[in-house]
């Protein structure tokens, strides 16, 4: 009887520990083999067979059907340029110039990795839609309340942002940690 209980305990605890380790490394963990560029993180092996099991599992959960680096490079930010977690109760300004790619977009996602519901049905800004200053630079505002022409509404809780570079310049894949990308600055908070 005692042996049976011990076997049961081994099974329950072993399976729970194994699944907890998967949750911590795949669901909550940082991108396997990724590189940082300011607040942005990316992996050149997203969508690629070279990615390894951890990155493949992370992409399955957080970026299914990602294109390989020859076609698109995906940067993601869950923190601002000062390292604070992006929080819908604060206003953020993403400021910069066109990244080196044929086409780019900035899109906000909720913690569930889906587009954030909002009455205006605004989810992204792109090279085609962003309003620019005279020097061609731009400022995109992320906030719960109204934020002007380049506004992307976000919800109350934590959120994250994708910067997609379609047909990136070769230099991006060559050194993805040193591409000049927009900064993310926190403004006022509730």
């Amino acid at each position: 009887m005692r042996t049976a209980l011990k076997v049961l305990a081994v099974l329950v605890v072993g399976i729970a520990l194994g699944l907890a380790a998967t949750w911590a490394s795949v669901i909550r963990g940082t991108m396997a083999g990724g590189v940082s560029d300011g607040p942005w993180r990316t992996s050149l092996y997203a969508g690629s067979r070279e990615g390894g099991p951890y990155l493949r599992a992370q992409i399955a959960m957080h970026g299914l059907l990602a294109l390989n680096r020859h076609e698109t490079i995906y940067y993601t930010a869950a923190r601002d340029s000062d390292g604070n977690v992006l929080d819908g109760r604060c206003l953020y300004q993403i400021e910069g110039r066109d990244p080196p790619a044929r086409w780019w977009s900035i899109t906000a996602y909720g913690a569930d990795d889906f587009l954030i519901p909002n009455a205006a049905e605004r989810y992204s800004m792109s090279v085609n839609s962003v309003a620019r200053r005279a020097d061609r630079s731009f400022v995109v505002t992320l906030s719960k309340g109204q934020g002007g022409a380049n506004w992307i509404p976000v919800g109350d809780g934590p959120f994250n942002v994708s910067l997609r570079l379609y047909n990136p310049a070769p230099a991006v894949a060559g050194d993805p940690a040193h591409v000049v990308l927009p900064t993310i600055r926190r403004g006022t908070c509730e």
Binding site: A9, V10, L11, V13, G14, I15, L17, G18, L19, A21, T22, S25
Partner: peptide
């Protein structure tokens, strides 16, 4: 327990 956890993971 440890071996099982590694295998499940």
């Amino acid at each position: 327990t440890l071996v099982l956890a590694i295998v499940v993971h």
